[in-house]
Each structure stands twice: as C-alpha cells, then as structure tokens.
Design a protein around this nucleic acid. Structure first.
Length: 983
RNA sequence: GCGGGCGUGGUGAAAUUGGUAGACACGCUAGACUUAGGAUCUAGUGCCUCACGGUGUGAAGGUUCGAGUCCUUUCGCCCGCACCA
C-alpha cells in the first residue's frame, strides 16, 4: 500500500476482529484479571456525540494495554435503556418504548463499533431486558426481606428478625430504621397481621412510607432528590412541587456511616469523595428536650381567666453547638412539625395555619428563590432547660422538617439566620461566646466556633470545646439531652409513576405487600403510556394485569437507577439464568479495577451502587463491599453553539398605518451577530433607532423584539454564516414554525460562538462518525486523547486534528515510502533508535498508569519524529513501537504488524520490556546559571566530582565574563542536574 | 455561605522530589518541491529590542543558591452542595 488508507484498513480489521471474536473474554485462572468499565450510556435518539467516546477511548486504551501486559481483561459495554425520553416519545407516537429503544441502541452500537473498541459484545446487557431485570427485581426482594442490625453492623434476614420478635419482642433489637414502640413477644403475638407488617416496614430495607416527595406534574412522576436540580426536574427541566404520597423507599440511610467510611478505602478523586461526604452530611451534635408551656383559655377549662400550664409536651431540638445554649432566646419549628397544631394557642391559630399552608405548598423552586425572613409566633413558650426562662416558639420556613428534629433552639447571637429572625421579630440577642475582635452582637452574629463562654452561668470562661462537653454531660445527667449524630442523607425514593421501568414484584394483599417470586415479572402491554392527572402509573390502566386473585399488584415501577445500581456485576456472567452472577465469575472478576465516567453521577448512581454492593455483601451474595476500586472522571466535551440575532419588527400597513393581521404582523429578520453585539443589552428604543437607520427594511417599523437566536453550528464556518443554507432551513420550517425570514447583511453574515453542553436541542452536536469518515477512527482516538487531560472539560474543536492525522501518516512513512516500497529490514538498530524506543517505552508505560494519555500521544509524536530523522528501518524497533501504539490506534498498528510479517493479532503481542541501559548517558549537558539565570551550557561526565565541575565552570569564559573578576560567593552543583553560581 | 478545582504564548497544552518555563501539536511567517493541492519537506515563531540584553506562569509579598511548583495575602473563573441548626 503506498499511502495510509484508513478507510480500507479500519473496516477490514473491524470485520476481522468481529469474525475471529478476538475480544471474547472467558475466565482464565492462569492469568491475572483486570476489569475496566465505562459508565454505560442511555441510548437517546440523538446518537453518540464526540463527548461520549472520550472516556470510552481512555478505558479502551487501558484495557488493551493491560491485555498486552498479560492480563485477562473484562471490558464490556451495555445500555441503560429504561427511562423517560423513550416513554415521552411513546406518549406522543403510541409506539412502544421498546421499539424506539431498540432503534437507538442499534445506532449506538454501530457508532461505537466504528471507533474500534475492544468490547466483548457477547456480554452486552440492557437494563430493559427481562432476563436482566429479573435480577433487578430479585435484588429488590432481597432488600425487602432484610433489615439493618446495628449490633452486627450489617443487613440481616427479616425472617430471623420475626423469629426474635416471636421469642422476645424487640427490646433487645437495635436497628437503623424508623423508630418503633417497644413490644414483648406477647405484644407481637397480639398484633394483627397488618399491625405486624406496619412494624416490619420500620425495619425492612425496602419499605413503603407516606412522605413528602418531589412531584413532577409534567412528567407525572415522583423524583429522587438527586434527580431534582435547582428545583427543576433534571430531565426536561419541569417544575417540581412537594406532595405527600405513599412511596417505596430504600433504606440507604442505614448505610450512611459505612458509605462514609468506605470512601477512605477507594481510589476516587477528592472532589467526588467530598461531594459524597457532603451529600451524606454527617454532623455530630446534641439532642436537647425543651418542655412546652402553653398559656391559653383552652387549657383553663371552665375558668374564665387566662391560665398557663406547663405541659408534658417536649420539643426535641438538634444542635451542633450545645455550648451556645445560654444564648438561646427563642425556638423555631418547621411549619409542618407534628407539634405545631397542638401547641398553637387559639389566638394564634388562624395566622399559624395560613402561614403553614402557604409554606407547605410552595414548590421547590419557590422555596429556593425566596430567602426572605418570615415566621409566625405560636403563642406557646418553651422552658429553657438550664435557666427556666420562657422562650417564645415560632414556626418558620427556614427550619426544615426533613433535617434533625425539624425544630431548633435559636441562638441569634451565634447564628446568622437566627440573628436575622430575631432582628425582624424584635427578640433579645445575648452573646455567650466572646470573640477576639470587637463586634456589635446586635448588628451581626458571631458564628465562629472558637472563643470563651460568657453569660453562661457556671460555664463562663470555658472554651467552646470544653463547654460543649460540660453542657452535654450535665444535660445527660439531668436527662434532657443526649449526644446525637445526624445525616443529611435521606432514604431513597424508589417508586416512579411511569410505565418504562422495572415492575415491582409485589402484590398488595389486604393492605400487606407480599412478594412475587416468579421472576421476571414482565411489563404488561398497556393501551396508553399516559396516566395524566392521576398519581398512578400507566400500569394501573391495565386492570386485568393489576387485579389478580392474590390481590392488587403494585403499579409503580422502579426508578432509572435500579438497573444501573448493579449492572457491573452482571457483566461478569451476563447469561446466567440461575443466579444474578455465578460464584466463580464473582470470585474471579471481583471488583471493577477501573471505572470511567462523568461527574454527573456523583451523588446518584455512584452512591446507590455502593449501597447495593454493601447490601449484597452483607447478605453473603458477593464478597466485596465497594464496587469500584478506582474511579476516573472524564471531563465534558462541550459544543460550540452559534448565535445570530433575530429581530421581530412589527409590521404596519403603510397606507392605513394599522398593524397588520397577526400572521403578517411580526416579521422576523435575522441580523448578523457583529452588527448587534454590544448593542443588544441596551433598551429597545435604541435598538429600534439603530434598526431604522442602519437597515433597509421595506416597511414601517414601530416596535422590535430582539433575541439571540441559536443556529446549527454546521451552517457556520469560523464565524461566517452560510446564509443560503440558513434561509433554506428556515423556509422549510426546520428551525421554527414562523414566517419566512428576511436576512440582513448577506455579504458578511457572522455568528458569535458560545461554549455550552453538547446537545441536540442546542444544534451544536458533533458526530464522531463524521470525524471517522474524514480522518479515520485512529485519528479520532488519538485526537480525543491529545486534546488535554482526561479529567478536564473542554470545548470540541477540530482545530489541530490535522496534527494527529499527520502523525499517523508519518508513522506510515516509516514503513512505506511514497511508492509503497517496504522500508523495514533486519539491519541493526542505531544506538539513537534504541534510545528513542526505550525512552518511549518508559514514558508510555508511566503515562498510561497515571492516566496521562495526552502526554503519551505527544511522546509517540516525538518517537516517530526521531525515528524518522534517524532513518530507522530496524524491524524490531518499528515492531515494538507498533505494540506501544496499539492501545491508542488499534487499526493502523494491526495493519502494519501484519504487513511486516507477523501472524495473528497484535492484541496478542507482548508489551515491550523497558531496559534502562539504552538511556544511560556518560555525560550531561549542565545548564550553568549565574544567580539562578541560565547563561550557558557545559557538558561534563556524569561521574565527575562536584569540585571538578566547579573548577571547570569557574574557568569557563562566559562564566568569567559574568563574574566580571569578582569571586563567586557560592557555587551550587547538583550532580546530574544544574550548576548555579552565586555572586 | 461551605466544599472541590483552576488561572502558563495567538490557540490546545507540557514541566518528576523546587533545578534550562512553554515539550508536543494547532496557527502564523519565510523558503523548497510542484501541470496552484486543504499534499509533503526545511527553517523560524513567548513578549520587548536591529542587537547586546531585558522581561515573562492572574496580582502583591515571603522562604530558597534557585519558585509555575512551597507559604501568606489578594483578584478572577469553573464545578458541586446549600436556610443542614
């Protein structure tokens, strides 16, 4: 072959690899294993864009590298295919989501295969496949039939727990679940089945509970906390409101501590670990009881006068600052705190109820936006446990029912939010911690947790730390307080009111959820994928399926993260229909050695997977309790969106000066970006004047509406817009259903660029197929790696892709000259070539281990440049370079490997051994600096003594010139590195 | 507010434990070859300066023989979490 014909080469070898199944993986106990995994994609209708393969290429490089180093590598790929987009599409078209999913998936696979990944497609899995979700349902059942035993610190069987209840009640049980009343064996026996189940629900790791949930009306489903971003649904960006519903939950909170501790044992980035720690949100503090005093006619009974009574009611508060308790001057409850209605006095009732109603019905978004200080007095007072002072009790939105106890002791002097509240309601502010700097506590709170106590009776002059301990101790002695740990982490909502998800293997029988053991429980057909206006899933539409002799089936389905929480296990043994994974496979493949994916799953998928893994480990199904040993987060490849301006000018009839009928009234005009950039943020009158005077609009313009208008990036070259094609797209209603547009400034119509997330709706998607067509998959692979560090986000740009393409052509030229004559032979390699080769072996090996793949590519370029100028024709050297490059550019290396006479596949070759002897130098060119600035270079033997070097350096004429006759103060000689003369 | 990260040429970026800042590319300039090609090759390219030389890693200090790297202060940007008591 005379020139590098990537098209022929790539399709040839891809076909060859597939037929010979060279990436098929089986257990081989004679080899060490390596499990490299990518976060599997959701196959959307938009297809892959150039951002997807970034991580896939990196994991493929590592996989191929490990294989060349003698590892048995598991490198699978699959699809996370349950989810909303397919279902939304089904709602619009009536087409079954399985059909669209299948189509998208086929396209994804085609695109992936073009890039030359070493996947074992026999292990492909899809979360939507009943053979797969059979085991998702099975794991759910295991969760349902387990509880968390605090004494053994692990999940155990619920049947064993029932036996304990039957024998001794629950007095000796400590569990990580809902609080329950104590009962004896007899008490248990006396309960009805429903009552017993209600108790068990407090223990089970999969359970139902009535709770405030994130409800998204537009999507018709409940969402988990991590699926809500800034008060809007992550998918689609729809409004989310709070609603009380009965839902399935997974008791992830039982694992809070272990999820936290486990982070110390895994090799993940600090930022992801920190995000998870943050999300779990452990805080140590104190729970303190405040008794309630109510002054009310109601309690006075027949007596007409106002009566005050100290009640038995206690308000429990959680605080991390028990040391500030003497500064507490009021209390605040969450508006939906359970004691609110009991303690509210008649006088205050109307106001309290009005406030609570508004607060409880606010959407997530409204709540986040509104940070103003508000609240209402309940009329009740709490008694300070130390001073017995009466503290007014308020309700306010700034106290959340979901965290701690939903009640706080407010310390305005030392908490910013309490301070703001106290100022607004005129409540006393008492400083109890002294600050170093002079501050006016009436104006500003002092939130720092250091200083000495004041105004705190016997505790004065203790430090914050000492006082905390002393106060907790006293509180415990007097039995009104105790140490307490709180978490921000909430139990994970597991119900979705959707069709396209795993059905729960549950039948409700007389109000008792019971398990269906015949799995898989397949999704039944339904007439409509919609159940708008109800809070039920579309499955409820199929009455025949729902109502069975045993009872009523659960109609909710599982959330998207169900299938993805354990998929990495299934790859080990994807076709097993007896077990979720066979024991031998589990033992052999074990943990994922390298997991690559985006940071967007930091608190969702990555936390749930860890939770499921720990659970499965507890119940003896697997032997490890962290799923992913090493995690690498690839950065996002962003797209470059192109904008021009659209001016809608109001058109008036020139004769009647009347506005024209609606359809002809607004005439959209596109304006080149360079005409309006910098003008647009100003007011409309100015723009109107500008438009009138600078543009030739063939009618009277009285009003304009102007906006930035995103156009497909393919219509832009640099910043130049192809107006003809834009006109065409516009006229064919491909952009928006509007009137034909008039274009302005056709001659030099420009667009501005903005970097955004790559997405179909932003018209900025770059398809890897296009790159593969133009340059080939090997160039694409190298280029994506060369772009910069894997973890960094960067905008996609094809600037520079020529460099990597040229590199491959230069590589080719080492093997064939322009006429296609073979260049390699068996003459001995030069010393320089051996040096180049071994330098490269070392650098590439180190770089792959450090995941520094961009610098690897640079080293390959150096290597090929050097071998080129050395005119290296040595077959062995060239061959070893091919092996080194193979993980990065599998096609061209396979082709050349075969061309020079090797049988079989380069994937089965051996990674070249690094031999330091080729790099050993006898001398070193020392940079000679004077006062730290390099002035010259001098070569000395490496074994020359420091004194000898110093002598030689000082004798040098350039050094002499700089010294200017003065003696040097000091000469620093660092052998093998540098010489610095200080004067 | 809290947590994590980042600031280096015209551009993407390199730089082990502190040891020649800008590797490798893109782009640009000049040249060569050529029945003008977006091909290939050669040379140059941080900035200022004809040059000697000076200067240079967001800014200001500090430690050091020597700082992109360590310390302090400060400015700017990105990401995550957030009335979390």
């Amino acid at each position: 072959m005379s020139s590098y014909d990537f098209q022929t080469i790539e399709s040839k070898w891809q076909a060859e690899w597939a037929t010979k199944q060279i990436y098929k993986t089986t257990i081989d106990h004679s080899k060490p294993k390596f499990y490299a995994l990518d976060m599997f994609p959701y196959p959307s209708g938009a297809g892959l864009h150039v951002g997807h393969p970034l991580g896939y290429i990196a994991s493929d490089i590592v996989s191929r590298y490990k294989r060349l180093n003698g590892y048995n590598v598991l490198h699978p790929m699959g699809f996370d295919a349950f989810g909303l987009p397919a279902e939304q599409y089904a709602i619009q078209t009536g087409q079954h989501p399985a059909v669209t999913t299948e189509e998208n998936l086929t396209r994804y696979k085609e695109q992936l295969n073009r890039i030359g990944f070493s996947y074992d497609w026999d292990r492909e899995l899809r979360t939507t496949d009943p053979k797969y979700y059979k085991w998702t349902q099975w794991i759910f059942i295991q969760l349902f039939e387990s509880w968390y035993n605090v004494k053994t610190d692990k999940a155990e069987s619920i049947d064993a727990l029932i036996t304990i209840f039957e024998n001794e009640g629950n007095v000796n049980i400590e569990h990580n679940g809902e609080e329950t009343e104590n009962f004896t064996a007899e008490g248990w026996e006396n309960k009805s089945r429903q009552e017993q189940e209600a108790v068990l629900q407090c223990y089970r790791l999969a359970f139902q509970k009535e709770n405030t949930v994130n409800w998204c009306e537009e999507l018709g489903t409940v969402l988990a906390n991590d699926e809500v971003k800034n008060g809007l649904s992550e998918r689609g960006g729809h409004e989310v409101t709070q609603k009380i519903m009965k839902q399935w939950y997974l008791r992830i909170t039982a694992y809070a501590d272990r999820l936290l501790d486990g982070l110390n044992t895994i090799d993940w980035s600090d930022s992801i670990k920190e995000t998870q720690r943050n999300w779990i949100g452990k805080s140590q503090g104190t729970q303190i009881d405040f008794r309630v005093e109510i002054s009310d006619l109601r309690l006075g009974g027949a007596l007409p006068n106002l009566t005050s009574k100290v009640t038995d009611l206690k308000i429990e508060v959680f605080t991390t600052r028990p040391d500030t308790i003497f500064g507490s001057t009021f209390m605040v409850l969450a508006p939906d705190h359970e004691l609110v209605s009991q303690i509210t006095t008649n006088v205050q009732r109307a106001e309290i109820e009005a406030y609570a109603t508004i607060a409880n019905n606010k959407s997530e978004l409204e709540r986040k936006k509104d940070k103003s200080v508000s609240g209402v007095f309940t009329g009740a007072y709490a008694l300070h446990p130390f001073t017995q002072k009466k503290l007014p009790i308020y309700i306010s939105e700034y106290v959340l029912s979901g965290y701690g106890t939903g009640a706080i002791m407010a310390v305005p002097a030392h908490d910013d939010r309490d301070h703001a509240f106290a100022k607004k309601f005129g409540i006393e502010i008492i400083q109890v911690i002294s600050s170093k700097d002079e501050i006016d506590i009436q104006k500003q709170s002092y939130d720092a947790n250091y200083g000495k106590l004041m105004n705190s009776e016997n505790f004065d002059r203790l430090t914050v730390k000492e006082a905390s301990q002393a106060i907790i101790q006293l509180a415990e002695e007097r039995r009104f307080g105790t140490k307490k740990i709180n978490y921000k982490l909430r139990d994970a909502g597991f119900s979705r009111q959707r069709y396209w998800g795993e059905p729960f293997p549950i039948v409700h029988q007389d109000g008792i959820p019971t398990v269906i053991n015949e799995l898989p429980l397949e999704l039944p057909p339904v007439d409509s994928y919609e159940a708008k206006g109800t809070t039920e899933s579309p499955l409820a539409n199929n009455a025949e399926w729902v109502n069975i002799p045993r009872g009523r089936r659960e109609t909710d389905t599982m959330p998207g993260y169900a299938g993805s929480s354990w998929y990495f296990l299934r790859y080990m043994d994807p076709n097993n229909d007896q077990e979720f994974v066979g024991k031998e496979s589990l033992e052999y493949w074990n943990q994922v050695d390298l997991y690559i994916g985006g940071t967007e799953h930091a608190t969702g998928h990555l936390l749930y997977s860890r939770f499921w893994t720990k659970f499965l480990c507890d119940r003896g199904h697997i032997s490890f309790d962290e799923p992913f040993k090493k995690l690498v987060n690839q950065g996002m490849i962003q797209g470059e969106s192109k904008f021009i301006y659209q001016v809608c000018a109001e058109r008036r009839d020139p004769y009647t000066i009347q506005a024209l009928p609606l359809d002809a009234k607004w005439l959209p005009v596109f304006v080149s970006a360079h005409k309006l950039d910098g003008i647009v943020p100003k007011d409309n009158t100015e723009i109107l004047n500008y438009i009138r005077s600078n543009f030739d609009i063939p009618f009277e313009v009285n009003q304009v509406a102007i906006r930035r208008f995103r156009i497909p990036s393919i219509l832009v070259d640099g910043d130049k817009v192809h107006t003809n094609e834009l006109t065409e797209m516009w006229n064919h209603h491909k952009l928006e259903e509007l009137l034909p547009a008039h274009f302005m400034h056709k001659e030099s119509f420009s667009a501005t660029t903005e970097v955004e997330k790559m997405s179909k709706s932003k018209f900025n998607v770059v398809n890897p197929d296009d790159i593969a067509d133009q340059y080939g998959a090997d160039t694409l692979r190298l280029y994506e790696m060369f772009l910069g560090p894997l973890e960094d986000s960067k905008p996609w740009s094809t600037k520079g892709i020529d460099g990597t393409y040229r590199f491959l052509k230069k590589l080719w030229a080492l093997f064939y000259d322009q006429d296609g004559t073979a260049q390699w032979n068996d003459t001995t390699a030069s010393k320089d070539s051996m040096k180049t080769l071994h330098k490269t072996i070392k650098k590439i090996t180190d770089d792959i281990n450090a995941m520094s793949l961009n610098t690897s590519v640079a080293q390959f370029m150096i290597c090929v440049n050097e071998l080129g100028s050395q005119k290296c024709q040595n077959k062995t050297v060239l061959e070893q370079v091919l092996v080194l490059l193979n993980p990065f550019a599998p096609h061209i290396t396979e082709e050349l490997w075969n061309a020079i006479g090797n049988k079989g596949f380069i994937a089965d070759a051996t990674w070249p051994a690094y031999d330091e002897k080729h790099l050993i130098e006898s001398s070193k060119v020392y940079p000679i600096s004077i006062n730290g600035k390099t002035r010259t270079n001098l070569e000395f033997p490496l074994d020359m003594s420091k004194d000898e070097i110093e002598k030689n350096v000082l004798a040098n004429e350039i050094v002499q010139k700089w010294l200017d006759g003065k003696p040097p103060k000091k000469v620093i000689v660092v052998p093998g590195r540098i010489v610095n003369v200080v004067m």
